[in-house]
């Protein structure tokens, strides 16, 4: 029952983005050009989210203004690199590869008991550090590739893959990113494979999270977009334990979605009563 209900909701989510591409393309063009930049840069992992960002960015800015970086670690899957290369070939983009193995291994050579999580986070931050450095070289704004499912579940590394200047896919659930990938004719191999942060060999997001993206998207949609209570979501056929787990993740990771909390001592404090839109500075 849970599966059927989740799939029904996901179909509805997919349908709802039928008209989203022009909005996302307009967003990228408008919010980038008004900063005085013409170029975008981001990490291209071979996964569906960054592939969609690549296609959107090319539509918004033209291929000469889009700089995806491929940044594998020595244990990264070769298939992911191949998928990323397929995106470049399809869009006529030049390959820019940075192997992060030397700096990551140098650091962990004196951090012997580092967990998978620490290593994964370090790699994500290493990649973002490179993106921001290269953004100066290419005079490009870094684009985020985290979708709404990841942002709500906190499935990402703070100041790593969660960092960006602009994020065109942050209000799209994973299911909706897949639907848009279809609209944009992202290569089939990328659309069909199991999502993976590629943090270690054979890792998949769904194994690590302990639930499927369809279940997560359906529950998140009901809790967040539809403002249902946990009890109401359970009454729709979802397991109480799973709903509880999703809700706990949303709350637990709220800090990742906010700027750092500042101790208020003055009459005008940044983020509290010094309130300006980002576009003020443009």
């Amino acid at each position: 029952m849970q599966r059927d209900r989740a799939m029904d909701i996901c179909r509805k989510l997919e349908t709802s983005v039928a008209g989203a591409v022009p909005v996302l393309v307009g967003f990228l063009r408008d919010e980038i050009l008004k900063t005085g930049h013409r170029n975008a840069i981001f990490g291209l992992s071979g996964g569906i989210d960054s592939a969609v960002v690549a296609y959107l960015a090319v539509l918004a800015l033209g291929k000469d203004h889009v700089y995806p970086l491929i940044m594998p670690y020595r244990e990264s899957s070769q298939a992911s690199v191949n998928d990323a290369r397929q995106v470049l070939a399809d869009l006529g983009l030049q390959e820019r590869m940075f192997d992060i193995t030397p700096q990551v291994d140098a650091y962990f050579s004196c951090q012997e008991r580092a967990t998978h999580l620490r290593r994964g986070n370090k790699m994500a931050r290493e990649r973002m550090s490179i993106i921001y450095d290269q953004s100066v070289v290419y005079q490009a704004l870094p684009l985020g590739t985290s979708n709404k499912t990841e942002l709500l579940l906190g499935y990402g590394t703070q100041f790593g893959d969660l960092a960006s200047a602009l994020n065109p896919v942050g209000d799209l659930f994973k299911t909706q990113v897949r639907a848009i990938a279809g609209q944009l004719s992202v290569p089939e191999s990328i659309r069909r494979k199991a999502p993976s942060a590629d943090l270690w060999q054979d890792q998949t997001d769904e194994d690590e999270l302990g639930f499927s993206y369809e279940d997560a998207d359906a529950i998140l949609h009901l809790l967040v977009d539809e403002r249902l209570t946990e009890e109401e979501v359970v009454r729709q056929g979802f397991q109480g334990e799973l709903v509880d787990q999703v809700m706990r993740r949303i709350r637990q990771h709220q800090y990742k979605r906010r700027m750092p909390v500042i101790a208020k001592v003055s009459s005008r404090t940044i983020g509290i009563d010094f309130r300006y839109p980002r576009d003020w500075g443009m």
Partner: peptide, 11 residues
Amino acid sequence: PGRALGGDPHS
């Protein structure tokens, strides 16, 4: 503002 996308191309 455009919000609440549905199946229609318009919000």
